[in-house]
């Protein structure tokens, strides 16, 4: 690791000015759980590291049942799973933040950082996609927004242009009779990286027997986390039954293009998509029914 300058700007404008000036030689430090390791191992290099934790709007969140969640990009994971209201409104996000690393990591790591790191296997991104999150980006020429499913552009790459940074994520308010869940498959039970990850969100009708709408998202089965559009739209009007969950999983398999590596074969990953979509839909429906 080579020496670098350290900057800790107090507002977004100062941060984006630094980013514009240094371009690719500037790296953002939020929780640091990815970037510090990457710098040390020579996977990324920086002339200047910009610590954004002095920027108030980036390290905090606001939530109301009417407006939804505005989540500062550097808010650490533990703040999310520590808030019961959030847990109730966005259970899949809660599932994700609980399994990103161990306690020490969760005390620093942020959902925004997980998104910016743009790993195909990122645990929080499918949950953000399933919950229709929007990414708010600031840059030297103003602010813009993109949907979570459009944020990542390749392994380790995202939509941010030179000078831009992720400021916040917004999630729409929780709908009645809705529920969600995230599961990843790992060979161990903790401290591992997803072989496949899947998040499902459903809204049931008032009877609780039928799915009004659903959203399914996947990780570690393509160069970027995926929104399973066909499987999601097919869910509308389907009965909330085991057969539906299986069929949705089969549809979701159609869009994946996994690789074979040390974490599993392509064939195995494709199979796991079906298993995890089925299992997350089941949990999401149960949560929708019990309003958890």
């Amino acid at each position: 690791m080579k020496n670098f300058e350290y900057a800790a700007p107090a507002n977004v404008e100062s941060a984006t000015a630094l980013l514009e000036k240094y371009g690719d030689a500037a790296k953002i430090l939020a929780g640091g759980t990815d970037i510090i390791v990457q710098l040390r191992e020579g996977l990324r290099a920086a002339d200047v590291v910009i610590d954004i934790k002095n920027i108030p709007e980036i390290v905090d969140y606001q939530y109301s049942a009417d407006v939804g969640l505005q989540l500062g990009a550097a808010t650490p994971c533990y703040r999310i799973y520590g808030d019961e209201e959030l847990a109730k409104a966005y259970p899949a996000v809660l599932d994700s933040t609980r399994i990103i690393g161990g306690w020490q990591i969760q005390s620093r790591a942020s959902v925004g950082g997980n998104l910016c790191n743009a790993s195909p296997a990122a645990d929080s991104i499918p949950s953000l996609i399933a919950h229709q999150a929007t990414c708010h980006i600031a840059g030297p020429h103003g602010r813009r927004s993109v949907a979570a499913q459009d944020f990542c552009t390749g392994p380790g790459r995202n939509t941010l242009e030179q000078g831009e940074m992720l400021v916040a994520l917004t999630l729409p308010p929780s709908k009645p009779n809705s529920g969600s869940a995230y599961l990843r498959f790992i060979p161990r039970n903790e401290m591992d990286i997803a072989v496949v990850g899947a998040a499902s969100w459903v809204q049931l009708d008032d009877s609780g027997e039928s799915i009004q709408s659903g959203r399914i998202a996947l990780a570690a089965v393509a160069p970027v986390p995926l929104y399973a559009e066909e499987a999601s739209s097919w869910l509308s009007g389907q009965p909330a039954t085991a057969a539906t969950f299986v069929e949705a999983g089969e549809l979701a398999k159609n869009i994946v293009s996994p690789i074979s590596d040390m974490r599993g074969t392509a064939e195995y990953r494709q199979h796991l998509v079906g298993v995890l979509v089925k299992r997350t839909l089941k949990i999401a429906v149960e949560r929708a029914r019990t309003n958890q």
């Binding site: 060979p187 161990r188 039970n189 903790e190 401290m191 591992d192 990286i193 590596d261 040390m262 974490r263």
Partner: peptide
């Protein structure tokens, strides 16, 4: 028995030289 192995690429390069991907059991396993 269950997870540990040196996973080699075609060039004979170990792909999982970390405790993340060389999966020793944790206390939860």
């Amino acid at each position: 028995a269950l997870n540990e192995e040196y996973f080699f690429g075609d060039a004979g390069d170990m792909k999982n030289a970390s405790f993340l991907d060389y999966r020793m059991p944790t206390c939860l396993d």
